[in-house]
Design a protein around this nucleic acid. Structure first.
Lengths: 174, 174
DNA sequence: GCATATAAGTCAACATGACTGACATAAAAA
DNA sequence: TTTTTATGTCAGTCATGTTGACTTATATGC
């Protein structure tokens, strides 16, 4: 097109081109999300392996623990998987005594889900591992950074309904 | 144990117990990471479906695009999967003309990986989708929040080697 | 009260992307 | 020359997702 060389793809940082910085900033963010998420799930995966469970079991345990008495449909909507997929893991969790089902009162078609004591123990073990990872990161940075982290994650969530799950917390007085 | 009722699990927020706030803060962080990551990968998954590819292909394309001329071993180390797993997706990408291999010069056992033009086009389409999601979130919040987001993600990454991938960028002058 | 919709569960078949283990080839390094 | 390394391949398994068809119990609308 012109004589001016189009910087092919990785324009040098020395050019201090704002567009490049922006691109690089976004690429780094994508990559950081990948690495951080890998390690974040990794600490739970190690524990799950002891029980012969996978991430799917973890997600079910997590949300049931978070919302005791939730229905199967609600869990399906959160996880965004099919009933058949969920049933495999949920069936295992119930059979092995980690989750209990209880018929709904107003609507007796519903099967309300709860963690058993055994399920609660596993949930706590898993959460403790992930919380200690997050807590370590939170401790290294300031409260403002933690707040920035939350804000960005909320911004990434496309779904308004998901966003509403997160009421603003008061910052703990440190 | 004692007469004092142990708050069963979800101590009320009204108690304003700092320990509860901390626990709730960490639980929210875990959940936000889950939802944000789901949406973040979701925008790419939609595009990948057009090509009959999955996330595994995306990761390979992403890192090859990011590090042109990288070896298969390097890619394996980053992805932390087995050679056999990688070979399936890499084989497809090569066969369908998204990735090229080139024998190493110093070490002729190596097969240096690069995106073809077709591969580059796909990579850009995928990155554009994820970047626009991230960029939207970055735009909504301040530069300090973006910085906090980065710091926390770095803190979550356990591996020092991973952390070193991310040089500090100058903030673009907004 | 009957028709329809909804909540939950089940059977079967299939795809993807991980894994292990064993082995082959070429080239580098000791 | 022997050993190690980089890559690739065959074969089998597992976890987790999918679609489609169908059942049962219960709620809800007309």
């Amino acid at each position: 097109m012109t004589d001016i060389k189009t910087p092919p793809h990785g324009a040098s940082k020395l050019t201090a081109n704002p567009l490049f910085l922006r691109d690089e900033e976004l690429r780094q963010a994508i990559e950081m999300l990948f690495f951080a998420y890998r390690d974040f799930t990794g600490v739970a995966d190690e524990i799950l392996a002891d029980y012969g469970f996978g991430r799917a079991h973890h997600r079910a345990i997590y949300f049931i623990g978070r919302h005791p008495g939730m229905t199967v449909s609600e869990l399906l909507r959160i996880l965004r998987i099919t009933k058949q997929s969920l049933n495999r893991v949920l069936g295992q969790l119930i059979e092995e005594g980690y989750v209990s089902q209880q018929q709904g009162v107003q609507d007796r078609r519903q099967r309300l889900l709860r963690l058993t004591e055994k399920g609660r123990a596993l949930e706590e073990r898993l959460s403790a591992a992930q919380q200690s990872l997050i807590a370590g990161a939170f401790r290294e940075v300031g409260a403002e950074s933690v707040d920035g982290f939350r804000k960005v994650l909320l911004g990434i969530m496309g779904n308004e309904g998901d966003r509403e799950r997160f009421e603003r917390l008061q910052s703990p007085r440190r």
